[in-house]
C-alpha cells in the first residue's frame, strides 16, 4: 500500500509541475504510452498500468472495469480486460508483458476513478515486467500527444 500511495503522490506532483494541456486531456511526462491508449509507469521491475486521460475522456462515464486475476500473465499488445462506459465497451491492452501482482480492487466499487483520476487512483493493475526491452516499443509523452492529435484530426 505504501508504494501505491507514494506513487500516487508522485503522480500528483507531476500533475502540478509538468503537465501540459492538449484540449481537455493531460499527458504525464514520466510515463510511457501505448498506441491503444494505455499508460505504464515503471519502477524497478514493477509496472503500473492504466488508461490515459485522452482515453477516459473519449469513453465517458466508466461504469465497470473487468480486471484479470492476480497471478495471471499478460502479453504486450494483448487484451487483458475491458472498460465499460455508459455507451461503449473497450478492451484494455497490456503495454508490457508480465505477471499480474496486484489489481486495483477499488475499481469494483468505484469504476468512476478511471475518469476522475486516470493517472492516480484510477490505476488498473501492476505487473512484474518480464522484458524491460519491450518499453522501447512504447511512446514518450511528446510522441503520444502528437499521436492523439493526429488521431483526433482523422475523425
Amino acid at each position: 500500500m505504501a508504494s501505491r500511495l507514494l506513487w500516487a503522490s508522485r503522480a500528483a506532483s507531476y500533475l502540478r509541475i509538468s503537465v501540459f494541456h492538449r484540449g481537455f486531456s493531460t499527458v504525464l511526462k514520466d510515463l510511457k504510452y501505448a498506441d491503444s491508449h494505455e499508460w505504464v509507469k515503471v519502477e524497478g521491475n514493477s509496472a503500473t498500468v492504466g488508461i490515459t486521460d485522452h482515453a477516459q475522456d473519449h469513453l465517458g462515464d466508466v461504469v465497470y472495469v473487468e480486471l484479470p486475476e492476480v497471478g495471471a500473465t499478460v502479453m504486450q499488445g494483448n487484451s487483458f480486460g475491458a472498460v465499460e462506459s455508459v455507451k461503449a465497451t473497450s478492451d484494455i491492452n497490456a503495454p508490457v508483458s508480465g505477471k499480474v501482482v496486484e489489481v486495483n480492487e477499488e475499481l469494483n466499487s468505484s469504476p468512476g476513478l478511471v475518469n476522475s483520476s486516470p493517472y492516480q487512483n484510477g490505476w488498473i493493475l501492476k505487473v512484474e515486467v518480464t522484458d524491460s526491452g519491450e518499453l522501447g516499443k512504447l511512446m514518450d509523452s511528446d510522441r503520444y500527444s502528437e499521436f492523439c492529435e493526429k488521431e483526433d484530426a482523422e475523425h
Partner: peptide, 17 residues
C-alpha cells in the same frame, strides 16, 4: 495497430446507429 480504446468514437456511433 489500432487498439480497442481507439475505436471509442466509432463504437459509440455504431452502438447508436
Amino acid at each position: 495497430m489500432r487498439g480497442g480504446l481507439w475505436q471509442l468514437g466509432q463504437s459509440i456511433t455504431r452502438r447508436l446507429s
